[in-house]
Amino acid sequence: MKKKNSDQLFSQLLSNDSVGQPNKAIEDRLMYSFMLKNGSSKLRQNSFAGFFGWMFSFQGLGFKTGMISLVLFFSVINNNLSYESTKVAGCDSTFINKVLVADSAHFIQSVDSIRKDSLN
């Protein structure tokens, strides 16, 4: 009788071995767990809670102060750049600086008449 190779024999024996199937409930439980885990991670991705939590916490104070300073600085610079001398820049209760713009014929006539009156 021809002898078999031991590897072949054991492979053949074990490949034909069957011990049944795993419990089907495991798959349901795993799928449910996967759904829960995945669901919670998606919720986190779409939530701003983390950002707001960080914004109003004491974490990264230097960074936050720097950012606010930058915003304030640029807003002031921007305001100064857009300053127009012909417009009212500001007023208070004691002084009103009105700048008149000579932009109509009627206005020019009225100014001329005032000037002539004062000369006379």
Partner: peptide, 23 residues
């Protein structure tokens, strides 16, 4: 987060891993 991919992988390995743990 693809659940169908997880299901596919589970079906691919469940019997083999079950056998391994069983023995």
């Amino acid at each position: 987060g693809d659940q169908s991919a997880f299901g596919e992988l589970y079906h691919r390995y469940k019997d083999r891993m079950y056998y391994y743990f069983y023995r």
